[in-house]
């Protein structure tokens, strides 16, 4: 379902040392992105639990974005693989609930990635606004 001009709500999982400073820098430099973006910062992007992602959809977030550490992760060289496993598991759960799997996205964001973060939020908002509200999707699918 397409909703014209719909401003989707996005939950971002960022990481304390790598992607959150990048997101802070976007603010510091007043590079604007959608005010419907909310951020939870964790130690590592491989620590996001799929149930938290599902909780976000239940609470009306239209999309979940994982600002991953990727190869920059100071905890594990396999971080990108682990974060990807989390996405795969979340998508499995989403399919069970008939939630469009495009509503979850991941990209590596580093501590100086202010512009890339803002661009990602722009593109993701666009995709999500075309999908429309997650509430309609959950309601119409159930």
């Amino acid at each position: 379902m397409k909703t014209e001009g719909y401003a989707p709500k996005i939950l971002v999982f960022s990481t304390d040392k790598i992607s959150d400073p990048g997101i802070d820098q976007a603010g510091l430099r007043k590079l604007h992105y959608s005010p419907k973006v909310y951020v939870i910062s964790l130690p590592c992007s491989s620590g996001v639990k799929p149930r938290w992602i599902m909780k976000a959809f239940e609470e009306g977030f239209d999309g979940v974005f994982i600002a991953a550490d990727g190869h920059e992760c100071s905890y594990s060289p396999k971080c990108a693989e682990y974060t990807n496993n989390i996405i795969v598991e979340a998508q499995r759960l989403m399919k069970e609930r008939n939630i469009n799997t495009k509503r979850i996205r991941m990209a590596a964001i580093c501590s100086v990635c202010a512009e890339p973060f803002v661009n990602h939020m722009g593109t993701f908002s666009k995709i999500l606004s075309e999908l429309g509200s997650v509430k309609n999707e959950i309601a119409s699918n159930s």
Binding site: L42, P43, C44, S46, G47, V48, K49, P50, R51, Y75, S76, C79, Y82, N85, I86, E89
Partner: peptide, 13 residues
């Protein structure tokens, strides 16, 4: 290190 990588992989949370 408190990275949390172990948490999502646990089948029984």
């Amino acid at each position: 290190k408190g990275c949390g990588i172990c948490a999502p992989v646990c089948p029984s949370d």
